[in-house]
Amino acid sequence: MHIPDGFLSAPVWSAFDVLAPPALGIAARRAQRGLDERNVPLLGVMGAFVFAAQMINFPVGPGTSGHLVGAALLAIALGPAAASVVMASILAVQALVFQDGGILSLGANIFNMAIAGVLAGYLPYRLLARAHRSSAIFLAGALSVLASAAFALAELILSGVPVPRRVLLLSMGFFFAGALVEGGITLAAVRAMERLNPRWFRTPEETAFPAPGWIAAAALLLVAAGVLAASTYPDGIERLAAAHAPAWVHAPLAGYSFQGVEPPWLRRVLAAAAGLLLIYGACLWAGRLISRRSA
């Protein structure tokens, strides 16, 4: 689901355009570390492969067909950092050359598919692949599509695109169907590839840690569910904040906007960016703390 320009409101697209580049920068640095410094041709060609693979139709049910999205497959084959870089590059080329997805909404699209989608696909694989390999791969494909779609829908709703309850339920149904299809395609593709060359996919080794991994997986699911719930019932969140938050938390973000800045849309941009930054920082800090304690 590539969001074109014209759908997202200024606060939403600008917040994601501010957040996506640093996240992509981190992924790029980690991808470079994991790879031979000069082997970027591999990543580029893998991007071209996913692009071309989307032309191969998989028959699903009578008269309909689906195709690979690829975030989970890339995450399994290349690792999460490299997969993020490749997915982001695919999205950039689709937006620039194929008019598929917007330029201003590129940050949001990158976040949905190249960051949330890749992580949601990688974590179940990382955590479950040793014990239940097939279900881990299926889950990777399904969750990555589900996470991307949930974020995209939430962004549209936050931007004020009216989504009536019936349409919301209908699109959730489509998302679940799409998730099952992606899970099935990912599993079938990985199996077929392993028959050709078993060395392409290494099962992740059992290292000490999974605690932060589980926490990250849980956090991602919570955020996806929370974002969806928050955007469906925005009034509920505001009421909750009004009732329970201490005044100093409430004041600067009142009504999700900054006081004292003139144009109202700019106020909302600042508020949205500040809120996302706060969450970002809190997650980073918590992650540090946990990994230090477990080390």
């Binding site: 060609v45 998989f58 392409w200």
Partner: peptide, 29 residues
């Protein structure tokens, strides 16, 4: 008509060819 499993096979062959091409490009560069 393309079946589900044969589509997966096609994907795998495409992956194999792309991967071989990538390593060829890398060696040449």
């Amino acid at each position: 008509r393309l079946q589900f499993r044969s589509a997966a096979g096609a994907l795998a062959v495409l992956f194999a060819r792309s991967s071989a091409r990538a390593s060829g490009i890398y060696q040449a560069m």
